[in-house]
């Protein structure tokens, strides 16, 4: 099951440049939350703070509080443990090119030391089914490499890989920006189904997409969270002038 995320007074830096200013936001469990805003506004930095990927960048720094369910993400427990609870899908599909489809999906478990083959077989099948890829690849999961799939399939493979470690939260950083409309449609349908089990935070440049998949939407501008509300409200009756300007296409 998904868990909620509570973010309090979050600030983030790249070296001396402050990328996020005083972000406060509650993400609802088992819902999809979309983050929109012009390029460079801090959306990606924000979700990278949630699973502590931000700190893998040299000279990057974070201050503030992030609670994933009941657990404080920055209380000194290891980042690797946290990341096992939070799956992440990136902008460009990044399957491990030298691994088969099966190995890609099993990678998270295998690299963390699971060896039970029957258990792994089950997890791989279940994850590929959850990411709606199973029917297309079931006959070749050992024969084909992850890189041999089409872009849309690769992205669904990456989703399966993230789901295989049974996370509670799924972060998606512009997961469809490198995909054609049909693949995009498939991923969006998928997000709808995955909500039942996971809390989803999705960064997108596509406002229709945000409107289609997310119950809640946050608008970022220049490293600040300008407005955060029900998606419907953001797109029909935003409270902030800047949000309105952005969604009506006056800038960005």
């Amino acid at each position: 099951m998904g868990v909620g995320i509570r973010v309090e007074n979050l600030n983030a830096w790249y070296g001396k440049t402050q990328a996020l200013h005083e972000i406060n936001l509650d993400v609802q469990a088992n819902h999809a939350t979309a983050l929109i805003g012009p390029s460079g506004c801090g959306k990606s930095t924000f979700i990278r703070c949630l699973n502590r990927m931000h700190e893998t960048t040299p000279e990057a720094r974070v201050e503030g509080k992030v609670k994933i369910g009941e657990h404080d993400a920055y209380d000194g427990t290891s980042a690797t443990k946290l990341r096992r609870r939070i799956g992440m899908v990136f902008q460009k599909p990044n399957p491990f090119p030298t691994m088969s489809i099966y190995e890609n999906v099993a990678a998270g478990l295998k690299l963390n030391g699971y060896r039970d083959k029957r258990h792994l077989d089950g997890v791989v099948e279940k994850s590929l089914m959850s990411s709606a890829l199973w029917e297309e690849v079931k006959d070749s999961i050992h024969k084909k490499s992850g890189a041999s799939l089409s872009g849309g399939q690769q992205q669904r493979l990456c989703i399966a890989r993230a789901l295989a470690v049974e996370p509670e939260v799924l972060l998606m950083d512009e997961p469809c920006s490198a995909l054609d409309p049909i693949s995009t449609g498939k991923i969006e349908e998928l997000i709808f189904e995955l909500k039942a089990q996971y809390t989803i935070v999705i960064v997108t440049h596509n406002m229709q997409q945000a409107a289609r998949v997310a119950e809640y939407t946050g608008f970022f501008l220049l490293g600040r969270l300008i407005e955060y509300d029900k998606t419907e409200k953001i797109f029909t009756n935003p409270s902030d002038k800047r949000t309105e300007d952005y969604i009506t296409g006056r800038f960005g």
């Binding site: 946290l82 990341r83 939070i86 990136f90 491990f96 990678a107 690299l111």
Partner: peptide, 27 residues
């Protein structure tokens, strides 16, 4: 080795040393 592959492994909760040995060195 593209950084995106390292990030994929980190995001799965794979420790850094393991990422280097199993992902980056595949070599």
């Amino acid at each position: 080795v593209p950084n995106s592959l390292r990030e994929a492994a980190y995001a799965l909760g794979v420790p850094r040393w393991r990422t280097t040995l199993s992902i980056s060195l595949r070599f």
